[in-house]
Design a protein around this nucleic acid. Structure first.
Lengths: 142, 142
DNA sequence: AACGCACATGCAAACTATTTGCATTTGCGT
DNA sequence: ACGCAAATGCAAATAGTTTGCATGTGCGTT
């Protein structure tokens, strides 16, 4: 997505277009998996041109989350929260317990189940998070 | 479960039987839902007889988790981790986003799906956590 | 194109959950 | 009952995240 497109997206959601927000949004939209605030911070703090504060990263992630651009993923890596672009297509991941690699899985196994559950319990279901842990093929070989 | 039974359980897992561990295990086994370390602490710190330190609570939960007696639930309440007895029958919960009430749901919608996923991706699946958020019937009325 | 204001960022400090070091206490096998 | 290894209490350290405040920047208006 071009920076012009991102700018429009921000505008449509009432988000002021700043350099830091552009950088983070662009990065997240290319990164196809949940990532921690600190990892994002590390990526940008290395280059003079993109340097930004960790609290800025947190604030931007918070803004994006409130505006629906980003989701706080259910996956926590060593006590740290992770975030990902809010794919409009609902998505889950598998995490490798050895190397912390994360990969998205296709489809949602809860499709259909939610409405059943809502009807049988009276709960009005809003969302769900599913986290699957295992050992990836690479780590199994070792 | 009687305190004698709990003692035996501890012994079988190589866990020394202390008063604090008895209290926490007994409490968790009666509490049918995930709870934070601090909530546990609050329960006991009120009575002289059962008073214990917060760090002890954390340490005990950690021990229990390592020995498989307790599970760290995927549910976080306001940034705090929650724990629950490791029901051998695999279990999930729904959380009310209004009142934070947690209630267990029957059965696991991922039965069967896991093996399919493992086969199709090469991941060796170890476990999963599912968190369902919604609004409970009580809060819907308000 | 410059101006001004509301909002965003940087920085440091505050907060909160959780962990850890160490002195003391307790459980349990002998 | 004794003694040692392990558990607990307490206080301080960590680590992730949030916040207050001074400064900087984007954007609508002139």
């Amino acid at each position: 997505m071009s920076s012009e497109k991102i700018k429009e997206l921000f505008k449509s959601r009432g988000i002021k277009n700043t350099q830091q927000r552009q950088l983070i949004y662009d990065f997240l939209s290319k990164k196809n998996q949940p990532i921690t605030a600190e990892e994002i911070y590390m990526v940008f703090s290395k280059k003079e041109k993109t340097r930004m504060n960790l609290s800025t990263v947190y604030r931007i992630l918070d803004t994006f989350t409130k505006k629906g651009l980003v989701q706080k993923s259910g996956i926590n890596i060593e006590g740290k929260s992770t975030y990902e672009i809010n794919h409009m297509d609902h998505r889950h991941h598998m995490v490798c317990v050895k190397c912390n690699k994360i990969l998205p899985i296709k489809g949602c196994p809860l499709d259909g189940y939610e409405s059943y559950l809502g009807e049988s319990t009276g709960f009005k279901i809003i969302e769900h998070h599913l986290e699957i842990k295992g050992i990836c093929p690479d780590c199994q070989r070792k």
